[in-house]
């Protein structure tokens, strides 16, 4: 279908000194579901609008299957954008909303009616065609917006924070719906979100944008296992960063000499490991075992967060509540950092 390629895309709004988006490059393979992830104001929605042709880039290029689309009008690009607040036309019925794109293409009304019916089946709202959007719940409005976008069979689908306005229980339902429709129709899909959970749950690949620049473009789990830098790791909930030196096999730091997995970076850097990967050391302690003092215990219901001290270094750990029931603040706790969970940031 459509391979989307973004090259050095930059947007400086008139009157602004800093670019809202700074030379973003991205390859989105045909049919993939890609997340643009970043805090609000990082240039995600700006990027989407430039792909959709609703905003003119300051420089850079957007190509579909190798052809630049910057000169194409928004209605000719085959890109449909679904906004965060759905923006269903309030004066039209649900069916008229869904059929809007076909009506604009002057499709025969009988045909429109048929396809609207099919589409409403697909998003599981078969009986609501005559309602006004204001009579629908948020989740239903979201489906109608999705149906309205998919009915025109776009080459590229853009979703703005597709799950963020939904209740927790609706999120997974909507995630499944979006994924199944997207896979079935094979539409190259890009969505933006500020919520890392939303990104990893929904996307094939995630592009993290911080301060208008792309930090990392990778598979979802890579952001937890192999973050490119501290900011990226922190965005994904990373807490432990220990400065030191790596020789590729061992990491020399205030925590002592720790064994690294194969292929670790060398030189000055920071060792990072996720709080949930910190374990209590088994009886037969081996390498990467440390003695920590418990500074604080925070009970979170399904898990317990521990603030630990190893010498002068603070270490965050998340454990199963049952494991740490018997410990209290001030106790010494032997901990173990599994080799495969360590990662060195240069």
């Amino acid at each position: 279908m459509t391979h989307v390629s973004i090259k050095e895309l930059t947007k400086v709004y008139p009157g602004a000194t800093e670019p809202s988006l700074d030379r973003l490059s991205l390859e989105i393979p045909t049919g993939e579901l890609t997340a643009l992830l970043g805090p609000s104001g990082c240039g995600k929605t700006t990027t989407m609008k430039m792909i959709a042709g609703l905003l003119e880039p300051t420089s850079g290029d957007v190509t579909f299957d190798g052809r630049s689309v910057l000169k194409d009008k928004p209605e000719d690009r085959g890109v449909v954008m679904v906004f965060q607040n759905y923006l269903l036309f309030p004066y039209m019925s649900v069916a008229d909303n869904v059929g809007f794109g076909l009506k604009m293409r002057k499709v025969d009304p009988v045909e429109i009616k048929r396809r609207v019916g099919e589409m409403l089946e697909l998003v599981k709202l078969p009986d609501l065609g005559d309602r006004k959007p204001s009579a629908l719940s948020g989740g239903q409005q979201q489906r109608v917006a999705l149906a309205r976008a998919l009915i025109v069979q776009p080459n590229v689908l853009l979703l703005d924070e597709p799950l963020s306005n939904l209740d927790a229980h609706l999120r997974f339902e909507m995630r499944d719906l979006i994924r199944s429709l997207q896979q079935e129709m094979g539409i190259t899909t890009i969505f933006v979100t500020h919520d890392q959970e939303e990104a990893v749950v929904l996307a094939d690949r995630v592009a993290l944008i911080l301060d208008g620049r792309m930090k990392q473009y990778d598979l979802p789990d890579a952001f937890y296992k192999r973050p490119v830098d501290e900011a990226t790791a922190r965005f994904f909930g990373g807490h432990n960063f220990v400065p030191g030196t790596s020789d590729g096999c061992r990491f020399d730091s205030p925590l002592g000499k720790l064994t690294l997995p194969e292929g670790a970076a060398t030189g000055q850097g920071k060792l990072t490991f996720r709080p949930e990967n910190v374990r209590i050391a088994p009886e037969a302690a081996g390498q990467n075992t440390l003695n920590a003092v418990i500074a604080d215990i925070i009970y979170l219901g399904t898990q317990t967060r521990l603030k630990l001290r190893v010498g002068e270094t603070e270490v965050d750990a998340i454990m199963n509540p049952n494991e740490v029931e018997t410990f209290s603040v001030g106790d010494t706790l032997p901990i173990y950092l599994p080799i495969s969970t360590l990662w060195v940031i240069r």
């Binding site: 042709g53 609703l54 905003l55 003119e56 009008k73 928004p74």
Partner: peptide, 8 residues
Amino acid sequence: MTTKETLG
């Protein structure tokens, strides 16, 4: 919407 417009 800030899209291109011709000189005309």
